[in-house]
């Protein structure tokens, strides 16, 4: 069964997202809403990583490198932030890309959980998808608000 590949992907991508949210938040701390919301959203991903533990115990977990389907797209996360208003916009956009990877990962796991009639996994996948959507909604909201000023008038 290849579910372990996706459990590994979920684990890895959620951890990357959480770390990247923290990096972006701290790096743009002069925008307090970015700082504090990124911290809160990173907490969502931490929770998902914790919730994955019993699943990983049951299905195993495979990480990139020794798997049959190695990563072609390397979503390494954000180690540092850009500066200025356009930099903030780009960083938020990168977070959105990472979040989308997480969301589709949960979508795939959700499908497998239905096929397996695994109630526990289904419940985790559903709730994690919902929380990931909240992360994406905030990123989208914040980018929309910031875009005109950043692109048209920022120094």
């Amino acid at each position: 069964m290849h579910l372990a590949t996706y459990v590994g992907l979920a684990h890895r991508s959620e951890r990357t997202l959480a770390e990247s949210l923290r990096v972006v938040g701290e790096g743009h701390a002069r925008h307090p809403d970015v700082l504090f919301t990124c911290r809160t959203l990173a907490g969502f991903s931490d929770d998902h990583v914790r919730q994955l533990e019993p699943v990983a115990r049951r299905y195993g977990e495979q990480h990139g490198g020794d798997v049959e389907e190695p990563d072609r797209l390397h979503a390494a996360g954000l180690a540092e932030v850009r500066s200025g208003p356009v930099g903030l916009l780009r960083d938020l956009q990168d977070l959105h890309v990472l979040g989308t990877l997480v969301l589709t990962t949960w979508t795939v796991i959700n499908q497998a959980a239905q096929g397996l009639r695994d109630h526990e996994l289904l419940s985790i996948a559903r709730s994690a998808s919902g929380q990931t959507s909240r992360q994406l909604s905030w990123l989208n909201t914040r980018m929309k608000a910031a875009a005109p000023q950043a692109l048209i008038v920022a120094p």
Binding site: R134, S137, N140, T141
Partner: peptide
């Protein structure tokens, strides 16, 4: 809105 994050519905 999402009351925790402020994301719009």
């Amino acid at each position: 809105h999402d009351l925790l994050t402020g994301a719009v519905v």
